[in-house]
Design a protein around this nucleic acid. Sequence first.
RNA 1: UGUCUUAUGGUGUAAUGGUAGCACAACAGUCUCUGAAUCUGUUUGUCUAGGUUCGAGUCCUAGUAAGACAACCA
Length: 560
Amino acid sequence: MSTPVTEPANERTLNFIEEIVEADLASGKHKSIITRFPPEPNGYLHIGHAKSICLNFGLAKKYGGKTNLRFDDTNPVKEDTEYVDSIKEDVQWLGFNWANEFYASDYFQQLYDWAMEMIKKGLAYVDDQTQEEIRLTRGTVMNPGKESPYRNRSVEENVDLFTRMKNGEFKDGDKVLRAKIDMGHTNMLMRDPILYRIIHTDHHRTGSTWCIYPMYDYAHGQCDSIENITHSICTLEFDVHRPLYDWFIEKLEIFPSHQYEFARLNLTYTVMSKRKLLELVKNNYVSAWDDPRMPTICGLRRRGYTPESIRLFAEKVGVAKRNNVIDLSLLEWCVREDLNKRANRYMAVLNPVKVVITNYPEDKVEMMDAVNNPEDESAGKRQLPFSREIYIEHDDFMENPPKKYFRLSPGNEVRLKYAYIIKCEEVIKDEPGNIKELRCTYDAETRSGGSSSRSVKGTIHWVSAAQAVPAEVRLFDRLFTEAHMDDIPEDKDYKDYLNTESLQLTKAYLEPSLKELKAGTNVQFERLGYFVADKDSKPEQLVFNRTVTLKDTWAKIASK
RNA sequence: UGUCUUAUGGUGUAAUGGUAGCACAACAGUCUCUGAAUCUGUUUGUCUAGGUUCGAGUCCUAGUAAGACAACCA
């Protein structure tokens, strides 16, 4: 269903992770590579995850390796099957196939056995302190922590206690298993990190089998190791976790997976925090996870973004370790770039003004040839009805035009795309002075495709009034009105900056051939932008979402 | 005030001791029956101060700035 994206012609430069991989392959450190995409199933994937997906899967694809999809489901309180399903759907939609579908919970028994091994090696202990006590005795980034009074329990006692933890003899919070490292370590994560906590909550996959659950740090590296992940790629904020990641692997003497960090994606006008996105959904600030304003993969999909455009975007933003904020215009460029080659052109009028062509016969209807896609000849042609009364875009007429206005104005001529050149002879207004109708004449010699050599500066789109199909469109804009979350003042609620108006439906008139368009089909409304037929669209009520506008240089000229 | 990470045009990203390049944005021009796209061109950059070197964006030292870390989240 998806054609290959416009891959960059020459790929001379490698990102730093590709360089590492090439070096590892060249030195024989690894014969082939295995990567993994490890989402926690506690929310929907967004454009930031797309970058990670493209990196992990793209890397394996490029170097002939494979990629696992692994759900990091170590916290039953936050996770749900709903999210598992959506994540799988989104990864596939983006165009990637995983070698294996794994779950951290698949490894609970192995992780437990390893924990026992750690205890027996004297590297882990059961701590009875309360959460509060543990927090207080951890110290601060500036000051070392204090050792737990339970730190030096005997191996036998620890084995007994941990076994009983597993058997459900204790309540949530009564005890935890901790690694015995160094309470004075400059890295807070090395100050006897918690390995297991007691949670008497059913897990979406393991049910009530377990009441102790491993923490991220104890689980992640080992899961990578079990799967022989050669390059474990995560975002920058995990770099302080790497010493711990390595510590477990070293102490357990298991496959040495290695973690590499890259900068996560930030986009202007966009919120990328899963927590905040969840809040937007739960509080109904947006209609759902796939609200077309959402930066989620499913939101972008409903908005008409293509997998190719998102992959192209991931390619363009690059991979580095520097914190970044990408301009939304780059994403929009990627969408236009892709859609420009594949979306058929149609005519639609969003804000109509009626035009009566006074010298055109009353009952005549001509069928005009229209090219579906000038970028793609195989897209073919269609026929458009033309008649005496048409609608044109309100913006395409100005009573008192500025100097460089090329479109319709009194006494001026303009080309109706695929039809005739018309001249505005008269403006008819209602009582308050609003333009009601334009009376024009047409030049019968100038029919599109004919022999006339006359040319005018402006070309506008139109639909025949009698045959026009009414529809509704959503003219989405960006999710936030400010350039970035960071630009929203501290004392303001970010929800006040949400674009809510753009969700509203606007009436439109479409050319008749759009009547049967299937939901999810990308089209370009001539001169208006790229649109997509929404999933709610029905033959009796057509609904379109605007994917992205065409670059509107006229608006810039006009605003000068 | 600790540890770690980072610092190249407006925004991203290359240059691995040897001509600072590419993309987006911006601007100008060219085409065009889409003021789009295409095509051409222009503007704008190595955080600071020292040092090593024939030569430093790159290596060293110091400073500055930004980010991360003190959940029984991931």
